[in-house]
Write a protein that binds this DNA or RNA. Structure first.
Length: 215
DNA sequence: GTTAGGATACTCT
DNA sequence: GAGTATCCTAACG
């Protein structure tokens, strides 16, 4: 790496913008997760945008529920959901309060605290795989529903903070359809990634689950 | 190297 | 009751 990562904190204003502006701008930024054992720092390499009211792929499309309430709140907070019976995924809430837009963090590179991440990601064979995929990312950072609604832009005392990192030149930002989103919600090219980065997760089209026969 | 299938429990209809 | 913004392992080339 030639350029150093800028440790300047990003304020809540960074997320207080339209989600489609924030999502590509998050690439190359650094999310700090302060755990009891120490900090883990993640350079974000892949995200997806979810635009509440207009977006059939969003959890917020059908209105506010107990699960997605944080998305309807003010920006700068973390929305964590539980899926597929085993996994957590984390989002950063964007835009003005009430818009219910958020950016799903899909993948990243652990740049600090890899030892801590490895203890939670025992199946990862290489460090590239520690946070390659949204549920892996949440696992590596020790994120679960207890952090739903936490401040994403806190100081060193909070569970999370954001740093300027190293923004990505626009010609290195790839974009395409979102992963695992069913129906017409999948048509929007609202997935953004850093071209050529080894930690970007492979694209998987949505496949409806076949229910296991009750035998 | 790729692909298929199972695991798992929460959320909304 | 059915679907899910997924991951892992085993099997095969």
């Amino acid at each position: 790496m030639i350029t150093e990562l800028d440790r300047t904190p990003l304020t809540r204003d960074f997320l207080h913008r339209p989600v489609l502006d924030v999502a590509p701008d998050l690439l190359g930024r650094v999310l700090v997760r302060n755990t009891a054992e120490g900090p883990i720092e993640l350079r974000i390499t892949e995200v997806e945008a979810y635009d509440g009211a207009n977006d059939p792929g969003s959890h917020a499309y059908r209105g506010r529920t107990a699960r997605n309430g944080v998305m309807f709140g003010p920006p700068g907070h973390v929305y964590v959901y539980f899926t597929y019976g085993m996994w957590h995924c984390m989002n950063l809430v964007c835009g003005p309060e009430g818009v219910a837009s958020a950016v799903l963090l899909r993948a990243g590179e652990i740049v600090e605290g890899a030892d801590l991440a490895r203890t939670r990601r025992l199946s990862a064979r290489k460090d590239d795989e520690l946070a390659k995929g949204p549920a892996r990312l949440a696992t590596a950072l020790d994120v679960d529903r207890s952090l739903d609604g936490a401040d994403a832009c806190g100081g060193p005392d909070g569970p999370f903070s954001l740093r300027a990192g190293r923004p990505v030149a626009s010609d290195l930002v790839g974009n395409g359809p979102r992963t695992g989103v069913s129906g017409e919600g999948g048509v929007h090219p609202w997935r953004f990634w850093i071209t050529g980065d080894p930690t970007v997760s492979p694209y998987r089209a949505h496949v409806p689950r076949r229910r296991r026969r009750h035998t």
